[in-house]
């Protein structure tokens, strides 16, 4: 057990170190991509906490992502807030939105849970369009460069942006690692594996799932807020159903219920699309085929399969 803990920490710290080094080694194009991927990976890690560890298949996470993004962007745009409080508001908004949705949606399970979350997200998207006077509707709005400075550091410049993304990613990953190795993390997994049994052991399934969903929402919210702030745009497309499917895709690809899976999945999926679109118009086909192939042949994803084949200690 002790040896495993050592291995686990070494691996995850090594990933962070490698990502830190990557900005100096990679050409600019790939460095910026990696910054995007790290923020999206935070979103996917949040999704993984709900889906991979707790077994909640949601199709409404775009609502939490967009809640964070707009809670960050709107106060800056309309009320001239500073970025730090705006970011914090984004984080909180994701959690609050997930809590509100969870209070209702968690009364259902399985397929119904999926459809209820989908409906809430759709209502959220339509609300953004409906309140276009305040939200900018489908066009969205630009987060002006002057508002993307934190303590004199320009987040729109490549190095600070990369470091900010890396900082967020590291915090998210270590937080996730801590969470899943904590007693509560084990209860989450127990809930996924056998809800009845955990109930008999004295855990309240509703409460456990709600807490997991709120944590998941916090991740999605802060990722949405960071994406808007680091890349300077807030728009309603981020609230569409595609952006609920995206983290699911990342998680499935990388391995549901693994700490590093979401990042690996986001990385693989991003470059799959990027490279495929260099060869063919039909990159949508590539995405579809990847989904089908994954679920057919590697339902546990990259890391899930590795874990089965020997790396049993992988968290």
């Amino acid at each position: 057990m002790k040896g495993e803990t050592g291995k686990i920490w070494t691996l995850h710290l090594a990933v962070i170190a490698a990502l830190f080094a990557a900005q100096f080694l990679l050409p600019q194009y790939h460095a910026t991509n990696l910054a995007r991927i790290m923020v999206l990976a935070v979103y996917a890690m949040g999704y993984n906490i709900a889906f991979g560890y707790t077994g909640l298949l949601s199709l409404g996470h775009a609502l939490f992502f967009a809640a964070g993004m707009y809670a960050m962007g709107l106060p800056i745009w309309q009320l001239e807030w500073l970025p730090v409080p705006a970011l914090i508001l984004g984080l909180v908004a994701g959690g609050v939105m997930a809590g509100a949705v969870g209070l209702l949606a968690l009364r259902t399970a399985g397929v119904s849970f999926m459809i209820v979350t989908l409906m809430f997200a759709q209502a959220g998207y339509l609300t953004l369009l409906y309140l276009n006077t305040w939200t900018g509707g489908d066009e969205g709005f630009v987060v002006e460069r002057a508002y993307r400075m934190i303590g004199g550091v320009d987040l729109a410049a490549d190095t600070p942006r990369y470091l900010a993304a890396l900082g967020l990613f590291s915090a998210g990953m270590l937080g996730c690692l801590w969470l899943v190795r904590s007693p509560f993390g084990r209860v989450m997994v127990a809930m996924r594996e056998n809800e009845e049994r955990s109930r008999m052991l004295g855990f309240n399934p509703f409460r456990v799932k709600l807490i997991a969903l709120v944590i998941s929402g916090l991740y999605a919210g802060v990722a949405g807020a960071a994406y808007g702030l680091l890349f300077g745009y807030v728009g309603a497309t981020f609230a569409t159903i595609q952006y609920s499917i995206l983290p699911m895709l990342y998680v499935l690809m990388g391995g549901a219920g693994t700490v590093l899976g979401p990042f690996l999945g986001a990385l693989a999926m991003f470059y799959l699309i990027d490279i495929a679109s260099g060869f063919t118009d039909a990159w949508l086909f590539v995405v579809g085929a990847a989904l089908v192939a994954l679920i057919l042949f590697a339902p546990k994803g990259i890391l899930g399969t590795l874990r089965e084949r020997g790396l049993k200690w992988l968290p």
Partner: peptide, 25 residues
Amino acid sequence: SQHNCDLIFGPLFSHVVIGSAPRAG
């Protein structure tokens, strides 16, 4: 960054323009 284009042109839809302009800047 990858194709080393001198400049970029052509988009029509507003949300794409607004979403892309910050990066161009």
